[in-house]
Simulated scan of single mutants.
Amino acid sequence: MERQQPRFAGISVAILRIAVGLLWIQNAGWKVPPDFGQTDDKGLYFWASQAVEYPVLPPYSWFVETVVLPQIGVFGWMILLLEAALGAFLLIGLATRFWALVGIAQSLAITFSVLNAPDEWHWAYYLMILAHLVLLGTAAGRRVGLDGVLRPIWTQSPGRIARVLRAAS
C-alpha cells in the first residue's frame, strides 16, 4: 500500500514539476536553427563553446570541441528536441521519473559547459540538478499529472490492461 503524502506536499511537488517543465520549454526558445548561433557566435554555439574556453571536465571539453561544435547543426537539433520534450513531458506529468533522469543528465551537461564561465552563478546549475532529483524521488507526475491518472491502469494485471485498452479503442 502506498503511503499518502500530505496534500500540501503533493501540490508543492506538482508546482515544482510544472515550473521545471516551463523552464526547459523557455530555454529551448533560444536554441535557434539552422546554425544555432554559430555564424554570430551566440546562442547554443556560444554557450557550448564555453566548455572549451573554460573547461570544467577536460574529457567533456575535448568532446565538445572535436565532436559537438563541428556538428552543431546535428547536435543543436538533438538538444532542441530533447529539451522541448523534457519540458513538455514534465509539464503534463507523463513518464516523469524517466524525464527527471534525462533532466539530471542534461543539467550535468550544461554544468560541465558553463560552470567556470565568467559571471555564472554556479548554484543555478546545482539547483537544477537538485530539482530533478526531487522530481525523480517523489514520482512527481502522480500529483496533478498523467502518471497519476495512468498508474492505476498500468498497475493492474496484464489481462485487465488489455481489456481497458480494447474498451478505449
Rank of each mutant, 00 (worst) to 15 (best):
A19V: 09
L80P: 09
A28L: 05
E83P: 01
P118V: 08
A95N: 08
M128D: 15
L101T: 12
Y54E: 05
L22R: 01
V56S: 05
N27Y: 15
E53H: 11
F8M: 09
Q26V: 14
A14T: 04
L94Q: 14
K31E: 00
G10Y: 10
A84T: 15
V74S: 10
I25Y: 06
I104V: 15
F46H: 15
A95C: 07
F89M: 14
V102K: 07
F63A: 13
M128H: 12
T111G: 09
H132P: 00
Y54P: 09
K42I: 10
S107G: 10
D41K: 14
S49I: 03
N116I: 06
I129A: 01
G87C: 07
L94M: 15
K31W: 07
A48H: 01
Q26M: 11
A100V: 12
G76P: 04
W30R: 00
L69I: 11
A51L: 00
I25W: 06
T39V: 02
R97F: 08
L16E: 05
H122R: 11
L23V: 10
G21H: 05
P55E: 01
W30I: 01
S61T: 08
W24C: 08
P58D: 11
A9N: 02
R17Y: 10
F98T: 10
N116S: 12
G29Y: 13
A117K: 04
H122L: 12
L108G: 08
F63K: 02
L69K: 04
M128V: 00
V114T: 08
I72E: 12
P34W: 02
G43L: 03
A84Q: 07
V134H: 02
L44H: 04
S113I: 05
F63E: 10
K31H: 06
T66S: 05
F112E: 06
L127S: 11
I11K: 01
L22Y: 00
P118W: 14
L91A: 03
A84S: 14
Q71S: 08
W62A: 08
L133R: 00
K31V: 02
Q26D: 13
F8P: 01
D119R: 15
G43C: 05
L16I: 07
Q26S: 09
I110T: 15
I129L: 11
V114E: 12
W47I: 02
V134Q: 06
A51G: 04
T66R: 14
L135Y: 02
V67C: 11
V64T: 09
H132F: 09
K42H: 14
L57P: 03
P34T: 10
W30P: 00
G93V: 12
Y126G: 07
G10M: 10
Q26A: 13
L81Y: 11
D41R: 15
L80G: 03
L81Q: 05
W123M: 03
P59G: 02
I104T: 08
V74Q: 09
G76K: 07
Q106Y: 14
Q106T: 12
A88F: 15
Y45K: 01
R97T: 08
W99Q: 04
L44K: 11
V68E: 11
A88W: 13
A9D: 05
P55Q: 09
N27A: 04
